[in-house]
């Protein structure tokens, strides 16, 4: 009972028994426990992301089943080649992200940085291509709902397709930009030398997120560009 008076605040206290690395938060016993908790949290977050997109997918399927002809007509305005290129860009970026995680796990800081920079750049390439696609649509008046002003629409209801197109690719694009922001932060932290085989949880979790965003695009691409 002699240690009752020990103050419990601050960073002092009871972590003298085992070495206490600076990344380990006070309420975890081991680095392993902290890593597992973080990973579980990330997976749960990804589940919520899937459910967020599921609302859009369901909306798409219902509108498409009500207006199949309009969807087929409307999707001809999309550029399949650009869509395909963007799919490949994201697939490669997923690969470079895996390599970044792997390098971080092996404490290869230089390689980690190189792969993170590549992933960031590929995300940027995706957004640039998306920008050109969007500007083309905007120029032609192929826009959602009341903004739709394309004169040569063959089938009524084509604006519904573009409603879904812009909302789905828009929400997805926001996720790409958010991911790029996080990767930029990882690059900053890696430069500072914060990650090593001992602790690279943020790189690992960002990798999971990046793969999910990639995976969602893999569903979006055939749904929007390859309607039949």
């Amino acid at each position: 009972m002699s240690d009752i008076a020990i103050p419990v605040g601050g960073q002092g206290g009871e972590h003298s028994a085992h070495s206490h690395p600076k990344f380990l938060q006070h309420h975890f016993h081991t680095a392993q426990q902290q890593f597992e908790a973080s990973k579980l949290g990330m997976w749960l977050f990804l589940v919520t992301e899937i459910l967020l997109f599921s609302g859009l997918f369901l909306g798409y399927f219902i509108l498409q089943s009500k207006h199949p002809q309009a969807f087929i007509e409307a999707h001809h305005h999309l550029d399949r080649n650009l869509g395909l290129i963007n799919t490949l860009v994201l697939l490669v970026s997923s690969f470079t992200m895996v390599m970044a995680v792997q390098s971080a796990a092996l404490s290869k800081t230089k390689a980690t940085l190189a792969f993170l920079y590549t992933t960031f750049t590929l995300g940027g390439v995706f957004m640039v291509i998306k920008y050109f696609e969007y500007s083309h649509k905007i120029h032609d008046g192929l826009l959602p709902g009341s903004l739709f002003s394309y004169a040569g629409a063959a089938v009524p209801g084509e604006y519904l397709f573009f409603s879904m197109y812009f909302m789905m690719t828009g929400v997805h694009g926001i996720h790409i930009i958010a991911g790029m922001g996080v990767i930029a932060y990882l690059i900053y932290r890696t430069h500072k030398g914060d990650y090593s085989s001992e602790y690279y949880t943020p790189v690992d979790l960002t990798g999971l997120y990046w793969h999910l965003v990639d995976l969602i695009w893999i569903y979006l691409f055939p749904l929007l560009y390859l309607v039949s």
């Binding site: 509108l63 207006h67 709902g145 903004l147 879904m164």
Partner: peptide, 13 residues
């Protein structure tokens, strides 16, 4: 934007 997904007049539900 009157995207139409929840509006029967615009083809939604």
């Amino acid at each position: 934007f009157q995207v139409g997904i929840f509006d029967a007049n615009l083809g939604g539900d």
